[in-house]
Design a binder for these strands. Sequence first.
DNA 1: GTCTATATAATGATAGAC
DNA 2: GTCTATCATTATATAGAC
Lengths: 207, 207
Amino acid sequence: MRSVDDLTARARIREAALARFGADGVAGTSVRAVAADAGVSPALVLHHFGSKDGLRQACDEHVLALIRSGGEDAEPSDLGALAEMLDSATPVRRYLGRALLDGSPAAATVFAEIVERTERWLADGQAQGWVRPTEDSRARAVTYVSWLLAPLVLGEQVGRLLGGDVAETATSVRGARAGLEMLTHGLFTDDRWLTAFTSVARTERGR
Amino acid sequence: MRSVDDLTARARIREAALARFGADGVAGTSVRAVAADAGVSPALVLHHFGSKDGLRQACDEHVLALIRSGGEDAEPSDLGALAEMLDSATPVRRYLGRALLDGSPAAATVFAEIVERTERWLADGQAQGWVRPTEDSRARAVTYVSWLLAPLVLGEQVGRLLGGDVAETATSVRGARAGLEMLTHGLFTDDRWLTAFTSVARTERGR
DNA sequence: GTCTATATAATGATAGAC
DNA sequence: GTCTATCATTATATAGAC
């Protein structure tokens, strides 16, 4: 693991901004705070990135590159390489969570790309017989990804209720196991909620 | 539906703050902006709520009361009364999403209460035979709730990829249906991911 | 590349009239 | 209850020396 002062000042600033933006949000973070964390003057931050928004964009692009590098090779979007990358880098996880909520362009791209990969992955599985068929494969992929990313945004809440620290390995293992259980055996033993919902949706559409 | 100017100034300010806080975050919202939306002077906002943080607390409590009123009577925490309430009030949804991410006390309470209700609901279902048994009912309830609330936080992303407007009825119906499908029939046809994960988790713990 | 010093605008909050 | 006027602080951003 490389230490902090191995980085150039520019990279150190970006790293500090990523952490701050993730923790307090972009609006809740001042250039001064980032500069202090990075051990430089506020002016240097703006010298390198032009403006606060420029700094935000640089963080966006950095995270986007990270996500892309950590998933294109391995099997797409299951709980594999991507989850591992996110699990090892808490600041990135937090930043991405906030970016998804704030709706930055890069976050939208990340989400769309993960959905794309997931949809292909599920289609492969369906062809090979280990994924159940569905009428609306797009909606399934989107919903699956939103479930996959949910702990990323709700991590603090999940962590508190599951005992350990947020994103502590033991904690996330409990959640992931419970999730996989529901995804393989299902949660309900019969169709009652599915049929109930379908009829409600029909009524809704028909009125 | 009651119109905006039926409300007292105090309520109008709170309503405006809820919307702004939800859209731009607390840090990204100025007292002046809230005052402008509510059609009052900035000073009046602080007169009624003491400080910006007081205003935030008032919003928290209001949302907490809303959630409690919209779920205690009906069947707890399935896609029923709660989902309906959230579906009809976009500003509340957005506010709650941000509050969950920011980790306000009220948001933590909301999350914990929903998990509590859900766990009881699932236990009932298990006793009556329409919910599958599990080893870790707590983790399952937490994970289920995080999935239930995922579209709330990732709504913008989900909406964009599913075509329609965010939280448009037709759009959310597609996602909800896909989710229920996975929860009743399961997503995978065999144990491959569950066993793979279990063995990985064992290795992780053993080292 | 990095700093100090500073301009300029916006922010949360207060005082006091009505 | 509601306003106008204002203060003190903090914000982003720039200028220019080193």
